[in-house]
Amino acid sequence: MEEERGPIECRVRVPATTTNFGPGFDAFGAALRLYNWTTLRVGNGGSAESLPPMVQEAAEAFGKAVGEPIPSFECAISGEVPCARGLGSSATVRVGVLVGLNELRGRPLSRGRLVALASALEGHPDNVAAAVLGGFTISTDDGQTRVALGSQLEFVAFIPDMEMETEWARSVVAQTVSLQDAVWNLQRASRIAAAICLRRYEELSGLFEDRWHEPARVKRIAAWEEMRRTAYGAGAIGFYLSGAGSTLMALAVGRGGEVATALTRVAAKRGLKGICRRIQAENRGAKAWLRRPSRRLA
């Protein structure tokens, strides 16, 4: 990242993510065609103190990983991923900074190492793995398995106006579960993973009920059960709370329009304010572009 040749800019497009898929808590994630953009520029000065804490932390983590200080840079973040809705907004920021700095530095870190760094900052790997790698990811603390998603699988997201604070959402998750409930979740999560990896999406139907994290979290969503029944009645093959919420996510094959119309109608009837979006999967993950800018960042 030499500054004597003038400023250089890296623009990073990072996809939103949906995670958990019901029983796949803190393990399953998928990237979506809904994006945030992080633009980093070196060579125009800038001060670390002026950067948001999340950006500073990511830059410091990258500097430690490559073993050298990071020069001052400017940073701008924009896009369409809403905050505190269970669509990975914080992951898009951290991934955007890490991928951008890695690109500016000449890619010293592999994508796997970037996932590990971002996971340490996030506290869990599911969002960042999908954001970096794209497609459907299954994560553990020490690695990921990733497969591409077929275009026939559609995500129908009802995104309420209501935010769901991640700190609260994680605080209400039970620290222990019964053996019966643990087996229930394990069985369904295993079948979800297998069906998605084999692209046998029709086998997903009926597998998304969770007995661990969702019951406590959805108490804050008055229309949860009615929205769930409506989605399945309109032809959805899955319905779950995306991430920590508040987004309600349906999966559909061929009937996404019907599911979206039905959810919108019920939400209006129940006074649940928000928007419904039909979104395809993003199989490419975070993508970066380098250029030499002619103007300062706004």
Rank of each mutant, 00 (worst) to 15 (best):
F158T: 00
Q144T: 07
V173D: 04
Q175S: 12
S178P: 12
S190Q: 07
W184T: 10
L204K: 00
V147E: 07
Q187Y: 10
I138F: 01
M164K: 02
Q152R: 13
L153W: 01
R146F: 00
V156M: 02
I196P: 05
S139Q: 04
E165K: 13
I192E: 00
V156G: 02
L186C: 10
A182L: 07
G150F: 02
F158Y: 11
M162N: 09
V183I: 10
Q180E: 15
T140G: 15
S139G: 10
D161V: 11
V177T: 05
Q175N: 15
D161R: 13
N185Q: 12
I159F: 08
R199G: 13
A169L: 07
P160L: 01
N185S: 04
N185V: 01
S151F: 09
D142V: 04
L153A: 13
F158L: 13
V173Q: 09
Q175C: 15
Y201N: 11
S151C: 11
E154F: 05
E163H: 06
W184V: 01
Q152D: 14
G143L: 07
F158N: 08
I192V: 09
V156H: 01
F155L: 07
E165L: 12
D142L: 08
G143F: 06
D141F: 12
M164T: 05
A194E: 09
Q144D: 05
R188F: 02
R191Q: 10
W184D: 09
V172N: 06
I196K: 03
E202A: 11
C197F: 03
T140I: 04
E163S: 10
R200P: 10
F155D: 04
A194H: 05
T145K: 06
R146P: 10
E163I: 01
S178V: 00
T140A: 13
A193S: 15
C197K: 10
Q152S: 15
T166D: 07
A195M: 06
Q180R: 13
A193G: 15
L179M: 10
R146C: 06
I159K: 08
S190F: 02
V183C: 08
V183R: 01
L179C: 12
A189K: 00
E203Q: 11
Q152L: 06
E165Y: 11
D141N: 11
L179W: 06
A148W: 09
R170N: 04
D161L: 04
A148G: 10
I138G: 05
E202K: 09
V183D: 08
D142I: 01
I192M: 03
E203R: 10
L186Y: 01
V147D: 02
I138D: 00
T140K: 04
L149N: 05
R199L: 08
